[in-house]
Computed example of a mutant assay.
Amino acid sequence: MKRDKIIFYAVTGLLSAMMLMSAGMYIFNYEHISAEFTRMGFPLWIVYPLAVAKVLGVAAILSGLVKELKYMAYTGFFFNFVLAAVAHLQTNDGEFGGAVVALVLLGVSYFFDQKVQKEATKASLASA
């Protein structure tokens, strides 16, 4: 159980850092990001809301206060990463690696979140 928690927090920490850096880039390097979004055919109005969504998604996953919000954040990140990978593949710019790494981190984080939750449930039932 301890190993699973360590893996969950390490991988989720990496994913969270990646998302927070991405959100920061969207906000503080808007000129570069807007040029990339335009090149890939995305509307520019989505840049700031996507940055906010990434920060809120990280908060939902790390806090775990509301289970449904945490799983909505996982789902939103999944679609964001898949769509980012597809957009980079379609434009043939060779920049899809970050989205693939994010997808792997997301999958591992979700898998170990599920394991930790099951183990916590078993432990609480056993002690009751």
Rank of each mutant, 00 (worst) to 15 (best):
F112P: 05
L83H: 10
A59T: 13
E119G: 08
L125S: 09
H88W: 04
M18Y: 11
L65V: 06
F28M: 02
F81D: 15
V55L: 13
M19H: 15
Y30A: 10
L15M: 09
G13R: 00
L69E: 00
I61R: 07
V52C: 00
S109R: 00
G98E: 08
I61N: 07
F96E: 14
I46W: 09
A102H: 11
A120V: 03
N29H: 11
L56Q: 03
F79E: 05
Y74C: 09
G41W: 00
V116P: 00
L65S: 11
A84L: 08
M18I: 01
G64H: 01
S34W: 06
L89M: 10
G76C: 12
I6P: 00
L44A: 15
N29V: 06
K115F: 00
A128K: 10
Y71C: 07
S22I: 11
T12Q: 12
V82E: 12
Y48S: 06
Y71P: 03
D4Q: 09
L83A: 14
L103G: 02
A87D: 09
P49A: 03
K122M: 12
G41D: 02
A53F: 12
I46Y: 07
Q117P: 03
V100L: 13
L103F: 09
D113V: 10
A120G: 04
I6Y: 06
G98P: 04
H88G: 07
F42V: 11
T12A: 13
M72T: 10
F96Q: 13
T121P: 08
Y30I: 05
V101Y: 03
V101K: 02
A73E: 01
G41H: 02
L44Y: 00
A84R: 08
M18A: 06
T12P: 02
A126L: 07
K54H: 05
D4R: 12
L62S: 05
E31H: 07
A120Y: 02
V11A: 00
A87M: 10
F111N: 09
K70R: 06
V86H: 08
A123V: 02
L103I: 00
F78D: 08
L103N: 02
A128D: 09
T12S: 13
L50P: 07
Y9R: 14
A23D: 03
